[in-house]
Amino acid sequence: MKEFSSDRIIELKTPLSIEDIINLRSGNRISISGYIYTARDTAHKRLMELIKSDRELPFPLKGQVIYYVGPSPAPPGRVIGSAGPTTSYRMDPYTPKLLEMGLKGMIGKGRRSDAVREAMVRYRAIYMAATGGAGALISRAVRESTTVAYEDLGPEAVRRLKVERFPAIVVNDILGNDLYEKGQKQYQILS
């Protein structure tokens, strides 16, 4: 199986197929282009309610990537305001179900629960980290932003973003590796 070195940046285009992610490994730097969807706490809660009552979702999940972000308002002349990731663990309770339904990737920051990590292996999906607090830099990768649902939630609305060369790092790959664990162990100094 081909492994990529950690300093090369791998281009990734959405929607994702299994072939796109099968060789990606925890630690790979990637650059994402295509459409991704934003959703955070309340949007996830509402998506789950729709799923439970067997109703149609505001966007298709199959092969898609969800970005956990609540951007700042777009100043005049800009597509979006500052748009870095929010902490992912708050979405953990909802995530296994979305993965089961075909979600292939998530972008956020911070560790995921064991249940989410198991579901990523089972349904073959990946979790990527964007740099938290680099919202100004990341906003430059966003070329279009359209609200597709829950406008009433303001920054928490579901948006479809067209991104070009969105910078991220693979944290969890389909084999169950975790960069937060691996990375810390590698640089820890035991006294």
Binding site: S6, D7, G27, R29, V69, G70, P71, S72, P75, R78, G81, S82, A83, G84, T86, T131, G132, G133, A134, G135, A136, L137, S139, R140, P155, P167, I169, L179, G183
Partner: peptide, 27 residues
């Protein structure tokens, strides 16, 4: 290497925020 890449991003981010007048972080 990932740490270096991230620190470089943070330096760029601060400059972009100041020049383009958008928040350093969305939060």
């Amino acid at each position: 290497p990932s740490g270096k890449a991230i620190l470089a991003q943070l330096i760029d981010n601060a400059q972009i925020a100041r020049e383009e007048k958008i928040p350093i972080c969305q939060d």
